[in-house]
């Protein structure tokens, strides 16, 4: 079920990138990033008010847990830099490599309090198949 949700997130991301791409072509990378966040914040504010949800900064929670939005803006900035220097397909492939390495470390060590699922040697075969698929896509 959660795997299905993940695939659905992928569908949403593709449409999002398409729409955001049109916006940034017309207005520029930084203007569009600002507008996208402004719209997102506006929507979230409406939902929070409609649900009468109280938003408060919780001092007992470590401050780095509030860094998600900051990281998201850096993701866009880094992607822009890489896109200009390396082109679209290499940016995508290297980004996926970064995601994979980071995910494997989180899974293996249970970083950030996540559930541990240790890396098994048998999985190397699957990883090689996955990597070859990505290489084919990038080269082709």
């Amino acid at each position: 079920m959660y795997k299905l949700f993940s695939a659905f997130i992928g569908v949403l991301i593709t449409i999002m990138i398409l729409l955001n791409g049109v916006l940034s072509q017309k207005l520029g990378n930084y203007s569009s990033t600002f507008i996208i966040h402004l719209l997102g914040l506006t929507l979230m504010s409406f939902i929070v008010i409609a649900k009468k949800n109280k938003i408060s900064f919780n001092k007992n929670i470590p401050i780095y847990l509030y860094s998600g939005g900051i990281l998201g803006v850096f993701t866009i900035l880094f992607n822009n830099i890489s896109f200009n220097l390396l082109g679209a397909s290499l940016t995508l492939a290297l980004g996926l490599l970064g995601q994979s390495i980071c995910s494997l470390v989180i899974d293996h060590y249970g970083v950030l309090g996540m559930r541990i699922s240790k890396f098994k040697k048998e999985k190397l075969i699957g990883l090689i198949i996955i990597a070859s698929g990505i290489v084919i896509m990038t080269i082709y």
């Binding site: 860094s67 992607n79 890489s82 940016t91 290297l94 980004g95």
Partner: peptide
């Protein structure tokens, strides 16, 4: 290359955080 890989890693860290 490092910047592109970091961009990917930042997505995963942001999601987990």
């Amino acid at each position: 290359i490092v910047v592109a890989i970091t961009a990917g890693a930042s997505i995963v860290i942001a999601r987990n955080v």
